[in-house]
Design a protein around this nucleic acid. Sequence first.
DNA 1: GTGCACCTTGAACCCAAGTTGAAGTCAAGG
DNA 2: CCTTGACTTCAACTTGGGTTCAAGGTGCAC
Lengths: 152, 152
Amino acid sequence: MDEILTIGQLAKRFGLKTSAIRYYERVGVLPEPARESGQRRYGPDAIKRLEVLEVAKRAGFTLDEARILLQSSDAGSPAFESLRDLAARKLPEVDALIVRAQAMRAWLLTAMDCSCTTLDVCALFDRDAQTPTSAVAEPLSITHVGGAKHAA
Amino acid sequence: MDEILTIGQLAKRFGLKTSAIRYYERVGVLPEPARESGQRRYGPDAIKRLEVLEVAKRAGFTLDEARILLQSSDAGSPAFESLRDLAARKLPEVDALIVRAQAMRAWLLTAMDCSCTTLDVCALFDRDAQTPTSAVAEPLSITHVGGAKHAA
DNA sequence: GTGCACCTTGAACCCAAGTTGAAGTCAAGG
DNA sequence: CCTTGACTTCAACTTGGGTTCAAGGTGCAC
């Protein structure tokens, strides 16, 4: 049960490339593992950590957020607090994404029925009078959703 | 009514930065406008084009796709054809996005109720047994959704 | 003693959609 | 003339999540 894996074995188990695992280490989302003659050796804790990371990624957290999660989990006690905080902060983002995606979907359905000969006359492209639900806003993206850190 | 705008005025009207408009020109999504002593001057056609572009962007099309749309609209005849094609190609992507976002939302709701003291014991982070709808997959993003052109 | 699989490193590259900066041009106003 | 403000250019940088490359090390079997 307490298997020790090389980076290649670990990568295979998670369907990742070794480069990805080294990258996680570089950005601080995985700790530096023990070494045997220079090579990384991963124990069960690293495996668990990678499992958590994978789920967090699927849940839409960025690596930065996942790092916070994992670090506060290391720090001992209030791991659940930051998980709840992160989830609570993420929820409105995801909700907004869903609303926009659904508006987008409605627009696309209308577009598939369109037979205007030029875009100039097509009502789909009049600003305002947009989709049934008028909630289409910024361009969609989840990886970048709270973004604009570098805005002026 | 046939106003002539400078790049700054055009940008203000669309809530863009001038750099964005120049960028659109650079990537071929806007044509090169007329110039007055070196400066760009935009007429009603450019304004309409930008309106279409904005709607297309909000509908989730990439700039590349928008360029196709606008070019075939310039080329005269079957604007609606490429619009319908693009819309039909985009729809499943958007549908997949919605499914994943909803699974993510469910996971987040569960996470907000979690009171596990460490992540290690938290069932949320067991792979498999994930969300009610098991459809969480790749990390979400729309800007990149058909992506993986550079995959090995 | 060499062939092979696996590992190591850092740096450079990929994508989209722009932004930022430096250095320069132009017209109007005082 | 000088300043102010809006414009011009191009290259380099940003974000996030990695991949790819080149050059070299390590361990083991044949």
